[in-house]
Amino acid sequence: MARLIGGRGCITFRAHPKAFLSKDHFMKFTGTDNYVATDDLMTAVNAAITLERPLLVKGEPGTGKTLLAMEVAEALGMPLYEWHIKSTTKANHGLYEYDAVSRLRDSQLGDDRVQDINNYIKRGMLWESFVSDKPSVLLIDEIDKADIEFPNDLLRELDRMEFYVYETQETVSAINRPVVIITSNNEKELPDAFLRRCFFHYIRFPDEETMEKIVHVHFPDIKKRLLKEALEVFFSIREVNGIKKKPTTSELLDWIKLLLAEDIDPEVLRGDSTKAIPQLHGALLKNEQDVHMFERLAFMSRRQDG
């Protein structure tokens, strides 16, 4: 069974046994050299491609949401346009921005450029992907970071794949409808009207078996015993009730990197999760309260043992 190999940064190849590529479906996503998608993810991606609707991907941080768009682009041989959303991002930013200030300045200086308004219109990622000469992938990353109304402002543009530029009075319509992939960290609820138009996929946190593979991909030489102990500690931390920030895949990888660098003996890790806070916990626990809680738990369990 194909498994998602996620995590931040570099990803390594695992061959996918199921080849869906067929003549009548020339654009089909089956995972790539670097990214092996789960079956449900592939179905969702392919539905989004075939029906030309956006695909909304949710999931815990560190499960490879953003990476998905990059890998889809690579698999389909399409250019990728990335639009990263911040809390201050407005829907317009993706379409275009009119730099009136520069134009005013130029007009004061008598620059010839000023005659053509097009010189002052900066294209956004949506525009770029609409006019791309071959079909493209458009990533709208972390849409939940923006204001709650943000997705609604993009409804028409994503639906019709066109928008109107007031300054030049032209309509920009997509030459090739891009494959739109939208990621969300669940920080805000997305509006229903927006959700209705998307396909939806939820990437789950990798289970222990998958995680083992992911770690192996990053640290092929890791000793079995160290890996086993480290994963045990990692998953037991994630299971602790009331922890404020659960460590993610990328944090696990950082931690293992540290363990390897410091050459920590697996024996030291054994029992760590109950008797003491884990070695080099700084990579896993990023919240003061979490660290405190662990210290307390560790103290209590030591007392029980003693």
């Binding site: 079956d39 449900d40 179905t43 539905a47 959700l195 396909f199 939806f200």
Partner: peptide, 13 residues
């Protein structure tokens, strides 16, 4: 696949 497709298209949460 049918199950995945129906889930991706009908359930958004």
């Amino acid at each position: 696949e049918f199950y995945f497709l129906s889930r991706a298209s009908l359930v958004k949460d």
